[in-house]
């Protein structure tokens, strides 16, 4: 049984890019809010559908979209901004009221699950449950020629955008005023406000950025796999959680490394002929990491997150 190693590497690499991109938003919110925002996967789906609506207009409500009304380089930012706004709305509706009352973290977690269900249902009412896709040829789909492996422009684009956004986020958190601000709020809201930080605004900014990252991931998914439903976030949701637990909660680099690692394990467990126990490999690794290194690969403990 021979394995097409170069092709499987390509498969792993770009899938890893997608996982990482999705997990980044999780990681960012965890680092600022100190909690898992389980509505992230719903925001991800919202991003894809905002993109679809931007691309096709009202057509999407009735039939399959067959033609792009707007160019793809407008559609992607629109999806990011749309998902960012949805994400901020989630913060205001699902988290802010609880935060004001100092509600326990668990309540906020539950509230985020509620927000996810609500968003998915709204999407379903608006767009229906059937699969949707971007019009054929939205983005060149023929493999790049002259290579020994099959890699399509969308895969390259997704990987480049994913890596670019990860890099940008890292710079933002580690090197900018906004990054310091977010890390300070993450550490202690009270101290942050005594330094002049408008904490609510910091939350909104963080949620916007996380939402925009989810939106970008949703667009990439939509374009690459050509299958979007309001429930598209469900399968990624658990992957994303695994990625950040593996990488270290709230660690940007951890989210990236975790994403690529999980993609590689998935792809190579399949490549080695065990697609039937692929998920078992992933969760076995997760289990081992949690036992050996409970903070995850790059986690530095709660005091030090972000």
């Amino acid at each position: 049984m021979d394995i097409n190693v170069p092709q499987q590497l390509v498969n792993a690499l770009w899938l890893g890019g997608l996982y990482s991109l999705f997990a980044l938003g999780y990681a960012l919110i965890f680092s600022v809010l100190g909690l898992l925002n389980l509505s992230h996967s719903a925001v991800f789906a919202c991003g894809a559908f905002v993109g679809l609506y931007t691309a096709c207009g009202d057509e999407v409500f009735t039939t399959t979209c067959t033609e792009l009304d707007r160019p793809i380089w407008i559609v992607i930012p629109a999806a990011m901004i749309g998902a960012g706004i949805v994400s901020v709305a989630v913060d205001r509706v699902a988290f802010w009221p609880l935060r004001k009352r100092n509600a326990p973290r668990m309540n906020q977690l539950i509230s985020s699950i509620g927000a996810a269900a609500l968003l998915v249902n709204l999407l379903q009412i608006q767009f229906g449950a059937a699969q949707q896709r971007f019009p054929f040829g939205s983005i060149p789909n023929d493999p790049v020629s002259g290579l020994p492996v099959v890699i399509t422009p969308i895969q390259i684009t997704a990987l480049v955008i994913a890596l670019g956004l990860m890099f940008a986020l890292r710079i933002l958190v580690k090197r900018t005023r906004l990054g310091r601000e977010m890390r300070t709020v993450a550490f202690n809201e009270r101290v942050a406000s005594l330094l002049g930080v408008n904490v609510d605004r910091t939350y909104m900014t963080a949620f916007f950025i996380a939402g925009a990252l989810a939106g970008a991931a949703g667009m990439m998914y939509g374009l690459a796999f050509n299958s979007m439903t309001p429930f598209m976030g469900e399968s990624v949701s658990l992957k994303g959680l695994t990625v950040i637990v593996l990488g270290g909660l709230g660690s940007i680099e951890g989210a990236v490394i975790g994403g690529f690692l999980i993609a590689a394990i998935e792809v190579f467990s399949v490549a080695l002929g065990r697609s039937d126990i692929r998920d078992a490999f992933v969760f076995l690794l997760l289990f081992v990491i949690l036992v050996v290194r409970p903070r995850g690969l790059l986690g530095q403990g709660v005091e030090d997150r972000a």
């Binding site: 310091r180 890390r183 300070t184 550490f187 202690n188 009270r190 005091e303 972000a306």
Partner: peptide
């Protein structure tokens, strides 16, 4: 205000 217990931002 310089808060009680110093409260430097530990991870920074």
């Amino acid at each position: 205000q310089v808060p009680e217990g110093r409260q430097v931002i530990a991870p920074l």
